[in-house]
Amino acid sequence: MTLDFDPLNIIISGVGGQGNILASDLVSRAFCEEGYFVSVGETYGATQRGGSVVSHIRLSKKHVYGPLIPLGESHVIVGFEPLEVYRILRDYGHDMVRIIMNDRPFYPLDVLQKKNEYPDIKKLVSLIRDLATDLKIIKATELAKKAGHAQAQNVVMVGAFAGSDWIPLEKNRFLEALEETFSGTNLEINKKAFESGFQAAL
């Protein structure tokens, strides 16, 4: 299979605590095993909880690229939180950007403290839809709860990414990466989470 773009640039965005880094780890290992040159840049800094977290993933058949995607060059965005998707999309979205998004808001402290308002969610989603070539909305938190744990929404989203048909990689590569990462009950929950995301994106 070939890439639509080389390098193909993918951004996974979310909020501290949502499991961004595990998701980018799964995706990058799956592509590495397939023989791609892969590089990942994680921006999380001092974020324990509640800050923005962004992973840049770059795939190439030519060589290893640097860890940061240039502005306007992200071909796929996998977003765990709609406000963060919109923030990333405006700066990094490629003209042909495609998006998979969990539309459940995670309110910033500023909003809880009533210093700022969270944008109207319907308006936010419609703006994102207007800007993207394709948008798949995944109810990842609910699917993760059904699979056994709300925390597995990141793996639901990786499943949806794998099922999106936008990327040249077999499902099994992702399952191998999952099996290397988890064991026992956690593996069962995460496999279920992955499968539910995969189905939801088809």
């Binding site: 509640g50 500023d110 308002e117 944008p119």
Partner: peptide, 11 residues
């Protein structure tokens, strides 16, 4: 669109 910033918070 006024986008609220996301400062790190104590857990």
């Amino acid at each position: 669109l006024d986008l609220p910033l996301r400062f790190p918070t104590l857990c």
